[in-house]
Nucleic acid binder design. Structure first.
Lengths: 196, 196
DNA sequence: CTATATGTGTACCGATTGGTACTGATATAG
DNA sequence: CTATATCAGTACCAATCGGTACACATATAG
């Protein structure tokens, strides 16, 4: 009795990937339901039945983004040293944000930096997620400091903010057409500011 | 015969400042004509008579932004040394992007990172302006290199891109609530990557 | 004064926005 | 088979979008 009525004729994850692509390229506000349904290959009532509404669809797509194209960020935190965490975050960003298989930049930045009131809760959600990852990074650096992997006088919150600032700036650069090589050089140069 | 018909009852520059504030906070797409006209204290036909349409209004506001709140960027290029140019750009950004008198971040970034097709020409205009300033900065650094103010092997385009990446990242940080002090520390730390 | 030129305000335009009611199709449960 | 539950598709909703036609007000030019 796993399914009672008529089975769904489309694959939810695939439809979600299509929606993700649209949100990524156009932002939450710039992506219309007409575009979304067309790209997803379904019509409006199916979208609402499967995902709730536009906002819920975006959050689902955002989760899928975090677990897919942006999974490298969490993985980078597991690098053995703080320096390597930063290297993997920055070079990973250079690669991911210019991956030709996807729209440029990071969905967390491109999704809704500014918007009308209707999309405000989405904007706040993205802010919260960015801040949340920044804190995870900060805590990883704190661990490194405790392990004498970073100088004892390091302000880990400041250092985490620096790394986030650079990766977020890379999103804007990618949106402006910066190439993978351009961003790799940015990553390399920025690492010259790394403590000791 | 300087004016023939009924004189305008509002101040164009003041109305433009109000429009700028709205565009800055909500982005081009997120700012509706209803909000704009309300903030400007005029009604729709007056707006269209004075500025043309929404797109033209945004471009006027953008010019006003460049000559006003963002004027520090051009001014920074006149600093005597390359290092001071970077210092003034970065610390100027830390201050300007968190100025409590204005919405956070830079209009050139917040205005339209992503959007629907209708706003695409605005998005491209902002991309072009960002690239244009990056090139001006690059040329300023080239001059510094010629003056032996930068190492002879400096890639000025790369260095300019690094500075732009950091200031643009600061916009995202400001949008997320980073304080002036937060960004000043980012600026200070980033300058540790400065060559020689 | 009249003629002309411009601005203001109301009321509206077609198109598009996100969101749904409802009909008919298609599966399982019994 | 029938009953039931879910999905797909058409056709529609009110609200809002950017933009404008038109009547009226207010200035200068003569």
């Amino acid at each position: 009795m796993l399914q009672k009525g008529r089975p769904r004729e489309f694959d939810t994850d695939q439809a979600l990937d299509r929606a993700l692509e649209i949100f990524w390229r156009k932002g939450y506000e710039g992506a219309s339901l007409a575009e979304l349904t067309e790209a997803m290959g379904i019509n409006r009532p199916s979208l609402y039945a499967a995902f709730g509404n536009k906002e819920a669809l975006f959050r689902r797509a955002l989760d899928r983004y975090a677990d897919g194209p942006a999974a490298y960020t969490r993985a980078a935190l597991n690098a053995p040293t703080a320096r390597e965490v930063a290297e993997r975050l920055l070079s990973g960003a250079a690669d991911a944000l210019t991956d030709p298989c996807h729209p440029p930049g990071c969905l967390g930045v491109m999704g809704a930096l500014t918007c009308g009131e209707a999309a405000d809760s989405i904007r706040e959600e993205l802010c919260t997620r960015r801040a949340s990852f920044e804190r995870e990074l900060s805590q990883r650096l704190e661990r490194a400091k405790a392990e004498a992997d970073l100088p004892a006088d390091t302000d880990c919150a400041d250092l985490a903010r620096l790394v986030m600032t650079i990766t977020q700036g890379m999103s804007v650069q990618a949106a402006g057409g910066a190439t993978r090589n351009d961003l790799r050089k940015v990553a390399d140069m920025a690492l010259k500011a790394w403590p000791v």
